[in-house]
Computed example of a mutant assay.
Amino acid sequence: MTGSKAHGFLRFVWSRRAAPGPRSWRIGHPAALAFAIMTSMSIAHHCHAQALGPAQTGRALAESLCTACHRIGAYDRDSSRMPPDFGAVAAMPSMTETSLRVFLRTPHGEMPRYQFSTSEMDDLIAYLQSLR
Score class of each variant (00 low, 15 high):
Ala6Gln: 14
Ala6Thr: 10
Gly8Met: 08
Leu10Glu: 11
Phe12Lys: 15
Trp14Ile: 09
Trp14Gln: 09
Arg17Asn: 11
Ala18Arg: 13
Ala19Asn: 14
Pro20Ala: 03
Gly21Ile: 04
Gly21Trp: 04
Gly21Lys: 05
Arg23Gln: 13
Arg23Cys: 01
Arg26Tyr: 07
Gly28Ile: 08
Gly28Trp: 13
Pro30Ile: 00
Pro30Thr: 03
Ala31Phe: 01
Ala32Gln: 13
Ala32Glu: 10
Leu33Pro: 01
Leu33Cys: 02
Leu33Trp: 03
Ala34His: 12
Ala34Cys: 05
Phe35Gln: 11
Ala36Cys: 08
Ile37Cys: 05
Ile37Met: 04
Thr39Tyr: 13
Thr39Leu: 13
Ser40Asn: 05
Met41Val: 09
Ile43Leu: 08
Ala44Cys: 04
Ala44Gln: 04
His46Asp: 06
His46Gln: 03
Cys47Trp: 09
Cys47Lys: 14
His48Ser: 03
Gln50Phe: 14
Gln50Trp: 14
Ala51Pro: 02
Leu52Gly: 15
Leu52Ala: 10
Gly58Met: 00
Gly58Gln: 01
Gly58Asp: 01
Arg59Ile: 01
Ala60Leu: 05
Ala60Gly: 01
Ala60Tyr: 06
Leu61Arg: 00
Leu61Ile: 09
Leu65Ile: 05
Leu65Pro: 01
Leu65Gly: 01
Cys66Thr: 06
Cys66Gln: 07
Thr67Asp: 00
Cys69Gln: 03
His70Asp: 02
His70Trp: 02
Arg71Pro: 00
Arg71Val: 03
Ile72Cys: 03
Ile72Pro: 03
Gly73His: 11
Gly73Ala: 13
Gly73Pro: 06
Gly73Asp: 07
Ala74Trp: 06
Ala74Gln: 13
Ala74Pro: 05
Tyr75Leu: 12
Asp76Tyr: 02
Asp76Thr: 08
Asp76Ala: 07
Asp76Phe: 00
Arg77Pro: 03
Arg77Ser: 06
Asp78Thr: 04
Asp78Tyr: 02
Asp78Glu: 11
Ser80Gln: 15
Arg81Pro: 02
Arg81Thr: 11
Arg81Glu: 04
Met82His: 14
Met82Glu: 13
Met82Gly: 10
Met82Asp: 11
Asp85Ile: 04
Asp85Gln: 07
Gly87Val: 09
Ala88Ser: 12
Ala88Phe: 06
Val89Phe: 11
Val89Lys: 05
Ala90Ile: 09
Pro93Cys: 02
Met95Leu: 07
Met95Lys: 12
Thr96Trp: 10
Thr96Ala: 03
Glu97Thr: 15
Thr98Pro: 00
Ser99Lys: 15
Ser99Glu: 14
Ser99Leu: 13
Arg101Ile: 10
Val102Ile: 15
Phe103Asp: 05
Phe103Ser: 14
Leu104Pro: 09
Arg105Val: 08
Arg105Lys: 15
Pro107Ile: 13
His108Phe: 15
Gly109Tyr: 14
Met111Phe: 11
Met111Val: 11
Met111Gln: 13
Pro112Glu: 10
Arg113Phe: 05
Arg113Thr: 11
Tyr114Pro: 01
Tyr114Gly: 00
Gln115His: 14
Phe116Gly: 00
Ser117Cys: 02
Ser119Leu: 07
Met121Tyr: 10
Asp122Val: 00
Asp122Cys: 02
Asp123Tyr: 00
Asp123Asn: 15
Leu124Met: 10
Ala126His: 04
